[in-house]
């Protein structure tokens, strides 16, 4: 099975990539001026106190020793303790990650679910009113920053209409007792949905617009390919051509774009979390950088890198699944 061999190889290739991310992040943090001890003790600190604190956090050791220790701990899933929160980094991440994953996952789901049919219909009705409308919407979508969309949505739906909450997220799996305004399972889901809707739209619009544009142009290109003309010449119905002969081929560039959108989504998550005051990974990473909380910066960056690498691997595997030529070299 060439697909399985290919996927295995892709997963193994991710290991050196992650190792590289660890090394670069570690080097960058240490290259940046200042360190957490300076921040904790303020201006003109007591020299003895500096030495004590440095020894406490292991900052007195040479950088290669510290890097090696960090790697050894990381393999055991220990990312050290946050200096600011004085808690294990892993615990802090476990607390913040679900909100970010929920936000990113739902915005991607929204983007794909809306963009793929829009793009296909737009291509099928090229230069007709539906197509023009879709193109205008997607052009506006790719040119509008997500935080601005978020602010407008808050202004309209929370401030003026007052129908949707403007801040925070509610996890759909939270117990009903812990959620205000919900007494049943279903109630929790409704409240969670209400909270999620605006952030999801503001983060997902850009992706939706970008994917729609690619889906449309990719479908148009495939629809003029010889094998589609051949299917038409052999009496295949237009609907079957669209669904079977053209759709699968047209998804290759779309998959690439979805994979690349993951980076913009991570950046967008930081802004969206700020606008909607969601306690997620995005805000955690920003605040830990400004506090020079070394272990926490390392941990959050690594988690984002991990999410991204997983996304890229999934992209590559779906690529190979759609196009048999990709995994051809992995045949026995």
């Amino acid at each position: 099975m060439s697909l399985i061999r290919y996927s295995t190889r892709r997963v193994l290739q991710a290991v050196p990539v992650l190792l590289g991310v660890v090394a670069i992040t570690f080097a960058l943090i240490n290259a940046a001026p200042g360190n957490p001890v300076d921040i904790m003790l303020g201006p003109s600190p007591n020299q003895a106190a500096v030495e004590t604190l440095k020894a406490k956090y292991g900052l007195d050791q040479p950088i290669h020793i510290r890097f090696w220790k960090y790697l050894v701990n990381l393999v055991q899933l220990d990312m050290g303790r946050s200096i600011y929160y004085d808690a294990p980094v892993t615990a802090k991440i476990a607390q913040r990650l679900p909100a970010t994953l929920l936000l990113m996952g739902s915005s991607f789901a929204f983007a794909i679910a809306a963009a793929v049919p829009l793009g296909v219909v737009s291509a099928q009705r090229r230069n007709k009113p539906t197509d023009h409308l879709t193109r205008v919407v997607s052009l506006v979508g790719v040119s509008t920053p997500s935080f601005w969309i978020g602010l407008v949505l808050i202004l309209v739906f929370s401030f003026h209409l007052g129908v949707l909450p403007a801040t925070n997220l509610v996890m759909p799996w939270a117990p009903p007792s812990a959620v205000a305004g919900a007494s049943t399972r279903l109630g929790v889901l409704v409240v969670a949905g209400e909270h999620l809707l605006l952030p999801m739209l503001s983060l997902g619009t850009l992706q939706m617009a970008a994917i729609t544009r690619i889906e449309r142009s990719s479908m148009l290109e495939v629809l003029s390919d010889d094998y589609v003309r051949l299917a038409r010449a052999y009496g295949v119905k237009e609907r079957t051509i669209l669904r079977k002969h053209a759709f699968r081929n047209a998804q290759l560039p779309v998959i690439t774009i979805i994979g690349l959108q993951l980076t913009t989504a991570i950046g967008g998550a930081v802004l969206t979390e700020t606008v909607f005051e969601i306690n997620g990974m995005g805000r955690l990473i920003v605040s830990s950088i400004s506090r020079q909380d070394f272990p926490l910066v390392m941990g959050t960056t690594l988690v984002f890198a991990f999410v991204f690498v997983v996304g890229v691997i999934l992209t590559d595997i779906s690529y190979a699944y759609v196009d048999p030529r990709v995994s051809y070299g992995d045949q026995e």
């Binding site: 390919d225 094998y227 051949l230 299917a231 010449a233 052999y234 009496g235 699968r248 048999p324």
Partner: peptide, 24 residues
């Protein structure tokens, strides 16, 4: 035309065999 003629009565072979078959 699609059901009775295309493929059934008249078939076509295109110029470029590399492009005429669907790669997937």
């Amino acid at each position: 035309l699609r059901e009775r003629i295309r493929g059934r009565e008249i078939a076509i072979i295109f110029q470029d065999p590399m492009e005429s078959l669907n790669p997937v």
